[in-house]
Write a protein that binds this DNA or RNA. Structure first.
Lengths: 254, 254
DNA sequence: CCTGACAAGTGGTCTATGCCACTTTCTACT
DNA sequence: AGTAGAAAGTGGCATAGACCACTTGTCAGG
């Protein structure tokens, strides 16, 4: 069982055993060494290593070597009922603004936010880091009319929804989608992962108490170091329908 | 901007344009034709096609050709407040039991379900299909002591939690995790997707009203045709903490 | 007209080779 | 002892070729 037939599979199994028996950060033998040891060609070795890199088990560094990757960070998305204090994702989270501009919404973002394509929005690209390391890249779109005074500082400190409240915006509801994706070149570069590595794509549209769309966010979370946990409460047919969840995707902040 | 430098990137961009301008199911030029047309080697073409296959944009069939892939299915995980009727994922969902056995829990599943490793469980592997096509593969583990009379029929009909209720088990709460993953060979084969294609990994541990662990599920949902949508309600600090969500990951059923 | 075999076209796996670019180590010179 | 340059070791990109395996289409024979 699990017996590899193809040479690439043999190499992969050999490497999986190395990964299981070495700590994160440990180097694995160089490609050329593996060629000799396993009697396969270099493209075949590279193909097997490619697969393990894409699944987040190995990390490659040009000119340095290939190393066993670290474990994932878990995001708990359940809090005590009614509590303000949300369960943070493990690690110390920070934000770093990569771009901040007031631009026209355009057709696509305009549709999402129910705005004219010409309406102005705050466009913010920001990097989310955990313990100093990139975890996600987010693209926020906030109608300028709703929070005209929004600043870069607002984007980098504390809970973003707290910041919005300080601008008179009381968020009420959000619809969010999650799907698996793979990184493109830009995202890969920003996040320090390979291109086409597994990732989670989040899209969220937030409305305030007055029914206005106040935020549209598109985020990419690296899949090798991030996962979501949720707690669901399910009742009998008569009581079903109530789940006490305070969902916080994608780390901190809301 | 977006200008490919590498030959592999040039090929990929060429193919992306083809994909955008052709409907699902349309064939793309054969590998050898692309070699000639783009003046690149076959391994280079294959590498670019590999990437598009892994992201779910193309589908390869041995001996037949390469075709533009179809769009994703969206799972809405929000229902009307208090309603029994849950928003179904699009398409017609069915289950097909692949395996059903009573086996010892083992160390890992035993820990999850708070059982002795020797305790017996119902182990069920089942395929979830939408419109007749594989969408997910699920591995259910239910303590035999909790539902001694569970049958294959229970696994294939209607809402699984309704079936458990018929066995006197009233599910109350579940904790679930979601992370991006890639398919292994077995999953790829069952789901009809390539190995190492992006997918969503779900793990869920369900408890009943008496605090017993009644179910542990491990599921793989293909990423090329599936995504999750949720609606979150957020209030002011005083009111925050209540989200009216009825989460149903992974299609139908719970 | 039907069937079977063969050819052509498709993707799949692998080897061999060359060269580029980055990083680290070692050696020689100051 | 320190520094700079070269060498060695690492991953990255690409080509060329051979052969395997699957699918489809065509043609000849019955």
């Amino acid at each position: 069982m699990g017996e590899a037939i193809l040479k690439r599979e043999q190499v992969r199994d050999y490497l999986l055993e190395l990964i299981e028996t070495h700590p994160a950060g440990a180097p694995i033998p160089a490609e050329r060494v593996l060629c000799q040891r396993l009697s396969v060609s270099r493209p075949t070795v590279r193909s097997a290593v490619d697969e393990l890199v894409n699944t987040g088990l190995l990390v490659r560094q040009h000119g340095r070597g290939t190393f066993v990757a670290r474990a994932k960070i878990t995001q708990e998305m359940v809090a005590d009922t009614g509590a303000m204090a949300l369960p943070r994702a493990s690690g110390t989270w920070e934000s770093r603004v990569l771009e901040h501009a007031r631009i026209p919404a355009g057709a696509r973002v305009g549709r999402r936010l129910h705005l004219s394509p010409a309406a102005e929005i705050h466009y913010i690209a920001r990097l989310r880091l955990v313990d100093g390391e990139p975890m996600a890249v987010e693209y926020l779109h906030v109608p300028a009319s709703i929070a005209p005074g929004l600043t870069v500082h607002d984007m980098e400190s504390g809970d973003f929804y707290d910041r919005l409240r300080e601008h008179g915006v009381h968020v009420h509801e959000a619809v969010q989608s999650i799907e698996p994706t793979v990184t493109n070149e830009s995202e890969a570069s920003i996040l320090g992962v390979p291109v086409f590595a597994p990732a989670l794509l989040f899209e969220r549209l937030t409305t305030d108490a007055e029914g206005r769309q106040v935020e549209y966010v598109h985020s990419i979370y690296r899949g090798d170091r991030y996962r979501i946990v949720s707690r669901l409460t399910l009742g009998d047919a008569a009581a079903r329908g109530t789940v006490d969840v305070q969902a916080r995707f994608g780390g901190d902040p809301f």
